[in-house]
């Protein structure tokens, strides 16, 4: 079953492109230290808001142009005519770097931020936070959602009514307020470099409820099916029935729901970090990087490269959503929205 789903995902051109994009993003995140030319927090205060350095082909080598700061107040840089530094590959455990003794020289493929840190480097390192938060988060959400939902549906009675009223309560509060309140409640117990966990706990707490409700509904219908009665009749225990008979029959729903709720985590992290309540400096995450773009200066002077994390968030969220839609069409053709 799982293999069939995977094969059909690969056959569909749209989902195949999403899978490739996501695979590339995750590979970049995994190999971030190797792919990025600098450590993520290396600053260069003389090169704040540096534009992307142009790469040229000269003397049979790839070289980068050297820039001078012509107006420090407006962060205006201009390439120095004829002056370039060659790029060397596979040096010092990095894919590429500059072949120079000058420790102030920089290659900025996507420009630099307000303290002269390389945006390209920080994008790669930020991907680690932004992309893993979704995966870790949904494993918690789906486990909780399944356990609570299936137990409610299967046991019924008091447990069911208490849990479902609780779920109603969670679903009735607007997500952002709940997220902010939870963050405020949990954050004091964690040091600032462990905010990653705070975000995951807060988001998991919010998102499990809707999947629990759906799983409960599915369990209610599955437990009426005769193979569950057969298992009860042969003396199978409650938990064995939950894991042998109910879980395998809701797993395709879980897969779809998981794929469709990864974007919630990515966006939730971005929202918190953008507001300064999530990942803290000097660590990197896409939401945190994007928060630099909210200053007036960036807006007025058109430092477009500071918006690249937003673009990556957009791409990732769209890819997961499309993938989830295609998955749902495969798993449950009746729900298909387009012809």
């Amino acid at each position: 079953m799982t293999r069939q789903i995977f094969i059909r995902l690969l056959r569909n051109r749209i989902s195949l492109s999403c899978l490739i994009i996501l695979a590339l993003l995750y590979l970049c995140a995994i190999f971030a230290p190797f792919l990025s030319p600098y450590p993520p927090s290396t600053q260069n205060l003389k090169k704040a808001f540096h534009p992307p350095t142009a790469v040229v082909f000269k003397d049979w080598k790839l070289q980068v142009k050297v820039y001078e700061n012509i107006d420090p107040s407006a962060a205006q840089y201009q390439a120095i005519e004829g002056e370039t530094i060659p790029i060397k590959f596979f040096t010092g455990g990095k894919l590429f770097g500059l072949d120079t003794e000058d420790d102030q020289a920089r290659i900025y493929l996507l420009g630099s931020d307000s303290t002269g840190r390389d945006v390209f480097t920080r994008l790669l390192h930020g991907a680690r936070v932004s992309l893993t938060i979704g995966l870790v988060g949904i494993s918690i959400t789906m486990t909780l959602g399944f356990v609570v939902g299936a137990l409610s549906g299967y046991l019924g009675g008091k447990f069911d009514s208490v849990m479902m009223r609780y779920v109603d309560f969670l679903l009735a509060i607007p997500t952002l307020y709940l997220l902010l309140a939870l963050r405020a409640a949990i954050a004091p117990y964690f040091p600032s470099d462990k905010m990653f966990y705070v975000i995951i706990i807060a988001l998991a707490f919010i998102t499990w409820s809707s999947s629990a409700r759906v799983i409960r509904g599915m369990t209610l219908s599955i437990r009426q099916r005769q193979f569950v009665l057969a298992a009860e009749n042969m003396g199978q225990g409650k938990f064995a029935i939950l894991f042998k008979h109910i879980l395998p029959n809701v797993s395709s729903y879980l897969l779809v729901a998981a794929t469709l709720s990864i974007p919630n985590y990515i966006l939730g992290e971005a929202a918190l970090s953008f507001l300064g309540l999530g990942i803290q400096e000097p660590e990197a995450s896409w939401g945190l990087m994007l928060s630099q773009a909210k200053s007036m200066k960036v807006f007025m002077l058109n430092f477009w490269w500071l918006l690249t994390p937003g673009f990556l968030i957009f791409i990732t969220v769209i890819a997961f959503n499309i993938l989830g839609d295609v998955l749902r069409d495969i798993v449950d053709p009746k729900m298909k929205t387009t012809s």
């Binding site: 005769q226 193979f227 298992a231 042969m234 797993s251």
Partner: peptide, 29 residues
């Protein structure tokens, strides 16, 4: 008595877990 008394169900399309192989279905009891 869950061993001594067994039941055969009405709907053959519903009484076997679609996600289990035949060997596991019969070995479950």
């Amino acid at each position: 008595y869950r061993k001594k008394i067994q039941m055969i169900f009405q709907d053959p399309f519903n009484s076997l877990n679609p996600r289990m192989r035949i060997s596991r279905i019969i070995a479950e009891p």
